[in-house]
């Protein structure tokens, strides 16, 4: 029981560390798209790891925590995709250091302007 508790708390701590890194990423990254990358991928992982750690700490709650985790896993990509697409189409600029932007070509290939 003691080892399980410590593992659960460690996984929770790892998850919140990822949350912190994601938040650090949205502060430090140069443009919106890079920020979004840090702020959605890292924090989704941190969120899931934290919920997993809580589930290890309290195994009776695993089903409900898994429900929340599944929900986050489904919804968060949708909202960040919609946000990135809207930002691109409303003309939020890329950072100066960006090397290559392939999105316009991909749009033309698929017939959307």
């Amino acid at each position: 029981m003691g080892a399980q508790q410590i593992i659960g708390a460690a996984v929770t701590l790892l998850g919140t560390a990822f949350l912190f890194l994601g938040a650090l990423g949205i502060v430090r990254m140069p443009d919106l798209y890079n920020r979004m990358q840090a702020g959605t991928k890292a924090t989704t992982l941190g969120n899931l790891l934290t919920l997993l750690g809580l589930g290890i700490l309290q195994p009776a709650w695993l089903v409900k925590l898994a429900l929340i985790a599944l929900f986050v896993l489904v919804t968060n990509p949708i909202s960040s995709h919609a946000l990135a697409r809207a930002a691109y189409r409303s003309g939020v600029p890329l950072a100066d250091v960006t090397v290559r932007d392939e999105y316009p070509e991909a749009l033309q290939e698929h017939g959307e302007a």
Partner: peptide, 8 residues
Amino acid sequence: VAMDVLSL
């Protein structure tokens, strides 16, 4: 984006 991260 910041709001999304905050909620997460």
